[in-house]
Design a protein around this nucleic acid. Structure first.
Lengths: 337, 337
DNA sequence: AAAGAACATGGGAACGTTACAAAAATTCAT
DNA sequence: ATGAATTTTTGTAACGTTCCCATGTTCTTT
């Protein structure tokens, strides 16, 4: 089926392509009657402008790349939703790539997206500094980047959307303490993620404030998967750490740990209460439901989309760092009932 | 940053654009030495062919659309992974849209993708017949469709990738019976999904074979969400249905039901064993882990990608219906230990 | 040595759209 | 009525690439 082009319309209406084009873009230098006729014919024949032609003409592909560490949990999907909300109505296409928590794949994804001629890239890092030269390079080549959630350690000239990790981690620990917990384990995220340090910082601050801090309570997960969570819990038991609650860097870690504890007949929340950061739907899919700090993921996506649009429009636009407020959702994993 | 074009290379090398082009596409009518020079310059200046120009020239956008009901569970992500495996190396971009289990949004997504000028669409339906005119229309306009997992009820001229729902459902029921269960509830999928009927068919067949069939054991879920699963379980208890196990249409339904049962102190698998179809990572994220029929999702995606490629290459290609073999994964939700 | 074959390169059109300059048609003021 | 001002329309180049045709080289073959 051949696509209807402006030429087809022009031929049919005995007008020049320029006139038809002007009618379609609502230019002022055109007779209202002519415009009406063109619009009518366009409707009738189902004319749609050819994005490729525009791309070629303006050098803008109307493609935005998205790079995320994984899509197994609903985290990225939620952010994607937000991005789509903003970008689809504007005619942008979104190309998604998964890094699989592997900086090497992240690098490949970024280069692939550049190949695809994207107008900009929205990215959730898998490593706080591994690909910094690539990011820098992309920026220098005029491809704007926007970081969200997991941000780079160095000072890159790019906007960011994030939450205040330390603040919300602190709030969570306060919550645990308020429910009477004293031996709160922090399942810290891996070193290669900047947020690990910040959330741990929030935890340590509050623990110290109440005189509860004990370095033995902090245990670092090797990665961010369920399995890493399991292994961390296993280690806790093996080391015979005395604990009454657990605050994990992430949903996945918390759930992995929780499952291991349940297998060992440790009841939640009766014996140990469990909580996490970066809560997604996952937190409500499991039993018992997981208390978690939930960032407004959809808004995060919308914000990131708006920031990238601003950068596309004006490459010199300010590199804002936007902090969004997360919500502390208390669920059954931290309250006996 | 200006993109390097063939013209730039031509100017620099004092050659015509035709020659440069020929060197780059490895045409035979070119002196090896010239080709080497061009390739070297291309490498040095970081030349990349402009996809938009090719799109315009050949009328192919190298965009493939993907339409899925949801991305909250890892189901679609897994399929996407498979699709990417095949299509990204070939320079295709994949544009993802979510229908949110809403035929109206599915329709909008399809039209959006058409607007985006995709070369083909891979789709997992949210309703077996709601948008059939749209699908038909797209096919008529020369946009190939490939269906996977949830397929249309009518006979559309399009390839499909699926599993044998009845067969695998039957296998699951056999498994439950083999573990000594007799009162097996089937949490049937909603009417608007074709697979519901087929999986229920497999269930009924085996139940009858063993003389265990009782219509009272079949309960239809209103939808496919966790909540629909919860509600179904609630209904089971309210109706005081006597059952010792449960086979759900889907992971999400099974998990929703399971959580409700757990809340009511019904232990799994001690009191009731639970199983599902279309298992994803979700099945292993929960406690106890869920026994499930797991279709090879990544291969499903790869298959779908290959089928759409065949159709793009030759619109008249055969409309194959590919059946993939699913695996029955037995986990703790159906075995006492 | 000449004619033809084989090879290597250049020129230009085409894909669909828009923007600018130019031309044509219309309106207006005197 | 007539030139000037204004409105409307047209022609054309350009975006980057490829491909066909034409032209110019070099190499065979007799």
């Amino acid at each position: 089926m051949k696509r209807i082009t402006i030429k087809d319309l022009a031929r049919h209406l005995l007008l020049s392509t320029s006139t038809v084009s002007r009618a379609l873009v609502n230019d002022q230098h055109i007779h209202p009657e002519t415009r009406a006729k063109v619009l009518e014919a366009a409707r009738k024949f189902g004319y749609k402008r050819n994005p490729a032609a525009l791309n070629l003409k303006y050098g803008l592909s109307k493609n935005i790349g998205l790079v995320v560490p994984e899509m197994v949990t609903p985290f990225s999907s939620k952010v994607l939703r937000g991005i789509q909300n903003i970008l689809y109505p504007l005619g942008y296409r979104i190309i998604i790539t998964e890094s699989d928590e592997d900086p090497h794949r992240e690098r490949e994804n970024l280069l692939l997206l550049e190949e695809f001629n994207v107008d900009g890239i929205i990215i959730n890092l898998c490593d706080k500094k591994q690909n910094q030269e690539v990011h820098q390079q992309l920026l220098e080549r005029g491809i704007p980047l926007v970081f969200f959630d997991r941000i780079p350690s160095g000072a890159l000239e790019a906007p960011q959307v994030r939450v205040d990790d330390a603040k919300h981690a602190a709030a969570m620990v306060e919550h645990l303490i308020a429910t009477g917990k004293k031996r709160i384990v922090h399942l810290k995220g891996p070193d290669n993620v900047l947020n690990s340090e910040e959330r741990a910082g929030g935890y340590i601050g509050v623990m110290k404030k109440y005189g509860l801090y004990d370095p033995g309570l902090v245990i670092e997960a090797g990665g961010l998967s369920f399995d890493d969570g399991r292994k961390a819990a296993e280690l806790l038991l093996k080391k015979a750490v005395d604990f009454d609650s657990l605050f994990a860097f992430t949903d996945t870690l918390a759930i992995g740990a929780m499952n291991f504890l349940l297998e060992k007949q440790i009841l939640i929340p009766r014996d140990v209460s469990v909580s996490s950061f970066s809560g997604t739907e996952l937190a409500t899919m499991i039993y018992p439901q997981l208390t978690s700090v939930e960032p407004p993921l959809m808004r995060m996506g919308e914000m990131a989309a708006n920031l990238i649009l601003a950068k596309i429009e004006d490459i010199g636009a300010e590199n804002k760092v936007v902090f969004l407020d997360a919500e502390l959702k208390v669920r059954s994993s931290t309250q006996d009932k």
